[in-house]
């Protein structure tokens, strides 16, 4: 089945200079391994291709059921230099949650994902 990241995770984003960070948190602890498996650095870099200018770093926080992504070159220079509406990267969080994931039906059902048929 296909599912939106929005339906299995929440997120918050912020800035450090020209880098936006997005922390993605599993809505249920048992969904964290799925997030960790699906949200690879390459996958997130591909999602933001053309939107950010630099690379992506990825960190795992299993204790918080969260992943942290650093999106470099995301903010037109950042802070006071930036001409962007979202100069501080506040809504990169929901931009990431737009991502769609393909999950095998059996796995989706076993994890109790929203919309999965059992």
């Amino acid at each position: 089945m296909r599912i939106r990241l929005m339906d299995i995770a929440h997120a918050r984003s912020g800035d450090k200079g020209d880098t936006a960070n997005v922390g993605v948190i599993a809505l249920r602890p048992e969904w964290y391994p799925l997030l960790a498996a699906q949200l690879t650095r390459d996958r997130v870099a591909q999602h933001f291709a053309g939107i950010i200018e630099g690379g992506v770093d990825r960190y795992e926080l299993p204790n918080l059921k969260a992943l942290n992504f650093l999106l470099h070159g995301a903010l037109d220079g950042g802070g006071t230099l930036s001409l962007k509406t979202d100069a501080q990267g506040k809504v990169f969080s929901t931009a990431l949650l737009r991502m769609e994931l393909d999950i095998p039906d059996a796995e989706a059902a076993a994890l109790g994902l929203p919309g999965a048929t059992t």
């Binding site: 960070n21 922390g23 770093d57 960190y59 204790n63 918080l64 059921k65 969260a66």
Partner: peptide
């Protein structure tokens, strides 16, 4: 948790003048 990940860099090394804190150790 949302606030913990706000403006986070490398969670294993949150550098301050007093100590380098490890966000990967936090239990809630």
């Amino acid at each position: 948790t949302e606030q913990l990940v706000y403006e986070m860099g490398d969670p294993h090394a949150y550098i301050t003048p007093d100590v380098v804190a490890n966000f990967a150790s936090i239990q809630l």
